[in-house]
Amino acid sequence: METGYKGTDRMITGIVFGVITFWLFAQAMVNVVPAVQSDLGISMGTLNIAISVTALFSGMFIVAAGGLADKAGRKKIAYIGFVLSIIGSLCLVLAEGAPLLIAGRIIQGLSAACIMPSTIALIKAYFEGKERQRALSFWSIGSWGGSGVASFAGGVIATNLGWKWIFIFSIIFAVLGMFLLKDTPESKQESSGSFQFDFAGLSIFIVTMLALNIFITYCASFG
Rank of each mutant, 00 (worst) to 15 (best):
K6Y: 03
G7T: 01
R10L: 12
G14R: 11
I15E: 00
V16P: 05
F17I: 04
I20F: 06
L24Y: 10
Q27E: 07
M29L: 14
V33C: 00
V33Y: 11
V33F: 09
A35I: 12
Q37R: 14
D39Y: 11
L40E: 10
G41L: 10
S43I: 09
M44A: 14
T46F: 05
I49K: 06
A50P: 01
S52W: 09
T54F: 01
S58E: 10
G59W: 09
G59N: 12
M60L: 15
V63H: 11
A69M: 07
Y79C: 01
I80Q: 08
G81W: 13
G81M: 12
G88Y: 13
C91N: 12
L94Q: 10
E96R: 15
G97K: 07
A112F: 07
C114D: 04
C114K: 09
P117M: 14
S118I: 05
T119R: 13
Y126E: 02
Y126W: 02
F127M: 00
Q133C: 00
L136M: 15
I141Q: 03
G142T: 03
W144C: 06
G146S: 13
G148L: 11
G148W: 07
V149H: 01
G155F: 08
G162M: 12
G162C: 11
W163L: 10
S170K: 04
F173L: 15
F179L: 14
L181P: 01
K182P: 00
D183Y: 03
D183E: 13
T184D: 02
P185M: 05
P185D: 02
F197I: 15
A200G: 08
S203R: 06
I204D: 05
F205N: 11
V207F: 13
T208S: 15
M209K: 00
L210K: 07
N213S: 10
C219V: 13
G223D: 04
